[in-house]
Every structure is written in structure tokens, then in C-alpha cells.
Design a protein around this nucleic acid. Structure first.
Length: 409
RNA sequence: GGAGAGAUACCCAAGUGGCCAAAGGGGGCAGACUGUAAAUCUGCUGGCGAUGCCUUCGAAGGUUCAAAUCCUUCUCUCUCCA
């Protein structure tokens, strides 16, 4: 099998590595145990977490053993990296709850059977730590002078950094040490903002165990539009179907900027390199084909083939203008008599969540941004009665892309 | 602990008694153009029973016919000193 390092490199996963030659050799010669940590700051992962997950999946496919760490212990501290302000300190209960959600989602990407991949909560070894023992074993290995020069603390030096956060680096480094001792873990990966933390861990393993440990970071992705990957105006794009519907998830990928399509196909799908190259080279409106493939593949990965097909069909039906089944679009159910009595268009918009206030609804109508069953609405006082019900539902549209079905019970 | 500076809408940032629901920029939303893209141009961007009313300029009080603007207390942040 080809060395997985080259796969990762070719697909754009590699930003920095601690030692290139020895790491490549290691990955080519033996089964390597590698880990990535996830912050339990929410009960679902989002698109931003997919990069490390995909990397772990590639490693597993190449026969290596991934470890996913959920930071139940470090979550009690909060990583200051990349933050301008202190993180909110999470409660133990909340973290436990979040870990449950994250575990379930990771299982979609990694095979945890027979210890082919391992999921751990670092609370197991961090919470029982004895302060003095920890300081003597781990703390003594760190130079404050050096820590202060680390990039991750620089921004915080200006805005203030509390002692609890300053300790975060030691704890993450300790994770690596524990994993090395228990599982022989030799590689830690993470976002490029984790570089300092990863180096600290690799250093610690080398100092205390005399063994070379490696680190690799992923690029921090921004879209061609300059936004943080996985964030939209509406917030993060979640992997949890209750937070982001498969249809919206599909649409998120379908709306990828032209310039990002190839890069994303490499990173977020398992399509072979030749196929990605072919799709990525499509020009002008042909590239829409590539976007469809991207959207379908990623949706399939996260929500399964059935949901992916539904999302794709719904999308094509809605944008194709056909009257096909658009059931995958977000929907709201209303009581039949609400419509029979007649409801103001702005009330209905508010009800569906398409707008957050009636004023916003009126504004949109005034600007010609609201469509009812395909026709533009120009009267903001329009009363919607049963004559608008078509096939048991009313189709609302905001702008060009946001569809919403209103089902009448 | 001492001295100073500051806190304005989603973000940055003007405003220092009425003309302020609050300039400007960013972001966002919509329209035009398109390929469900980008770029560009245009409009909008606190709420409501709407030519009026209500809430909003860190919090709570006070002065005034009138406060984001003045006074008092409090909370938080930053800078310098120890």
C-alpha cells in the first residue's frame, strides 16, 4: 500500500510537520498509532471538525490506528490558542453530555471495532492528577521563557491571559505522553493553531521517554470568500441532522465557491485523485457538476446514501423548477384552520422562521425577495387562504435559494 | 495595591444636552446580472396594532422640559507603576 503520508500530502492535509523524513519512514514501515483531540465545546461536531476526522480515516484505511481524544479534562481548562478572549469554562455535566454526541458522530467515519480505532476521554487521566506530582514530572520540563515566545500566547499577551489557560499547553502535552506510554502513540495531528501544543507534547515525550514523537498540522481552511470553513451567516454547519438538516448540509456544499471545489473534493471526499482532478478542471458552468458530486459525496459520508439521494433530488427539483417532491426542504406544519381563516403573509413568514420579525418580512416583500408557490409576492398585506394550498402544502421561498414548505394539517 | 484610559447596535467605530433608532466601514439579507459561482451595481439592515408608539449606547440611581451625551455609585476591560 502507498505510504499514507503521500496521500495526505497530495490531498492537501499537510501544513507543517515536525520531522518529514523520519515520519514518512515510520508511516511506511510500521503500524502507527496517531491521535487527534476534539474539544467538547458542543454536543455535535461541525464541518470544521471534518478535516481531522478525514485524516484519521485515511490513516485507518492505510492500516494505522487512530485515536480520537475527547477533551473532557482539557475542556475544563479551555485552550487559549487562536482565541482573543478567555474561553467559557464548561461544567463537568455539560462536557459529559457533549462527549456522548461527539462519540456517536465519530463512529460514522472510523471503525472502532476490535480496537482498530480508539476513543478516549482525557478526563480519565487529567482529573485525577495530583498538582504537586504533575508539576514535578511535567512542569519541570517546561521553560516559561520558551512558552512565552510561542505564537499561541502572543496575541493573548496583549489582551490578558489567565494562569489556568497558560497551563493548557502542559495538559495537552501530557495527553501525548500518556498516549505514548499506554498506546505507543507517535503522532499527534491537529489544526495549525495547535502547532505550539503539538510541539510541546512531542518535546515532552522525547525528554521523558527518549523517543522521537511526531506532529503534523492541517491547514486552517478559509473559503475563497474569506470565511472560516464550515461557518455560514446562520452559524456552524453541523453534522447532527437535527441541527443542520441533510438538505441544508447538501446545499452548503453545493454552494461552494468555484475556487474551492477541487480542494474540498480532495479533503472531504475519498474520491480517487484522478477523478478529483477531472472534476476540478471543469470550467464555467460545467463546474456545477463537480459541486453536485462534492455535495452528494460529503452528504453521503455524513448522513448516509439514502439521505444524500433525498437531498440531491430535493435540491434539483427545487432549483429545476419542477413540481417534484421537495420534502427534504425545511418545513413547518400549520393547522388547517389557520389557513382557512386566512393568515397574513408576514405572519406566515414569521411562523416558518424564514424571517425573525414581521418588519423583516415586510422589508423583504418590498424588495421582491419573497415568493409564494413560485410567484413573487408584492403585497405585504396579502392574506393567505386555502386557495393557496396546492397538494396539501404551500411553498415559500426567500430569495433564490431558501425554500420552505408549509404543510397544512 | 497606586495612577490613568475605556465600555455605543452582529463586529469595528463616530457622536460629549435636543436636528439620535444613533455617521462611516465591515458583515449580513434582498434585487439586477449569472452558472444555486465570483466580481460588480442598487436597496435594506431594532421592534410593534406603524405618518405614531415601545425598547436600545456596560449596570443602577440622579439632574433636566429634554441624556448615548452632565452627576453619583457599581461592574468589567486595557495601559503604566509595584
Amino acid at each position: 500500500m502507498e505510504n499514507v503520508f503521500y496521500t495526505l500530502k497530495e490531498r492537501g492535509f499537510v501544513q507543517q510537520i515536525t520531522h518529514d523524513e523520519p515520519l514518512i519512514r515510520l508511516l511506511g514501515e510500521e503500524k502507527v498509532t496517531a491521535y487527534v483531540g476534539f474539544d467538547p465545546t458542543g454536543d455535535s461536531l461541525h464541518v470544521g471538525h471534518m478535516l481531522p476526522i478525514m485524516a484519521l480515516a485515511h490513516l485507518q484505511q492505510a492500516g494505522h490506528r487512530p485515536i480520537a481524544i475527547v477533551g473532557g479534562g482539557t475542556g475544563m481548562i479551555g485552550d487559549p490558542s487562536g482565541r482573543t478572549e478567555m474561553r467559557q469554562v464548561l461544567t463537568r455535566e455539560l462536557i459529559k453530555h457533549n462527549i456522548q454526541g461527539i462519540k456517536a458522530q465519530l463512529a460514522k467515519f472510523l471503525d472502532f471495532s476490535d480496537d482498530k480505532a480508539i476513543l478516549l476521554d482525557n478526563a480519565d487521566w487529567i482529573l485525577p492528577l495530583n498538582y504537586i506530582e504533575f508539576l514535578r514530572e511535567v512542569g519541570s520540563q517546561f521553560s516559561v521563557n520558551r512558552m512565552l515566545t510561542a505564537e499561541c500566547f502572543k496575541t493573548r499577551m496583549e489582551r490578558g491571559l489567565s494562569f489556568i489557560e497558560f497551563n493548557y499547553m502542559l495538559l495537552q502535552a501530557y495527553d501525548y505522553l500518556v498516549l505514548y506510554r499506554k498506546y505507543g502513540c507517535r503522532l499527534e495531528m491537529g489544526g495549525d493553531d495547535q502547532w505550539s501544543n503539538i510541539l510541546a507534547g512531542a518535546d515532552l515525550v522525547r525528554r521523558l521517554e527518549g523517543e522521537e514523537a511526531y506532529g503534523l498540522t492541517f491547514p486552517l481552511l478559509t473559503t475563497a470568500g474569506g470565511k472560516k470553513m464550515g461557518k455560514t451567516e446562520a452559524g456552524a454547519v453541523w453534522l447532527d441532522p437535527d441541527k443542520t438538516s441533510p438538505y441544508d448540509f447538501y446545499q452548503f456544499w453545493r454552494n461552494t465557491h468555484d475556487a474551492d471545489v477541487e480542494r474540498f473534493l480532495y479533503l472531504y471526499t475519498f474520491l480517487p485523485v484522478e477523478e478529483v482532478k477531472r472534476l476540478g478542471s471543469l470550467k464555467d458552468n460545467k463546474i456545477n457538476e463537480a459541486k453536485k458530486v462534492l455535495a452528494f459525496e460529503v452528504t453521503k459520508l455524513v448522513h448516509g446514501e439514502e439521505e444524500a439521494i433525498k437531498a440531491k433530488e430535493a435540491s434539483e427539483a427545487l432549483f429545476g423548477g419542477a413540481n417534484a417532491d421537495e420534502s427534504a426542504a425545511p418545513s413547518t406544519e400549520v393547522q388547517g384552520n389557520t389557513i382557512e381563516e386566512g393568515i397574513n403573509i408576514t405572519e406566515l413568514l414569521l411562523l416558518t422562521g424564514l424571517v425573525s420579525s414581521k418588519s423583516e418580512g415586510r422589508r423583504l416583500i418590498k424588495q421582491g425577495g419573497i415568493y409564494l408557490n413560485g410567484d413573487r409576492v408584492d403585497d405585504e398585506e396579502l392574506i393567505i387562504g386555502s386557495e393557496y394550498i396546492d397538494d396539501g402544502k404551500i411553498v415559500l421561498r426567500k430569495g433564490k435559494k431558501v425554500f420552505h414548505n408549509v404543510y397544512v394539517k
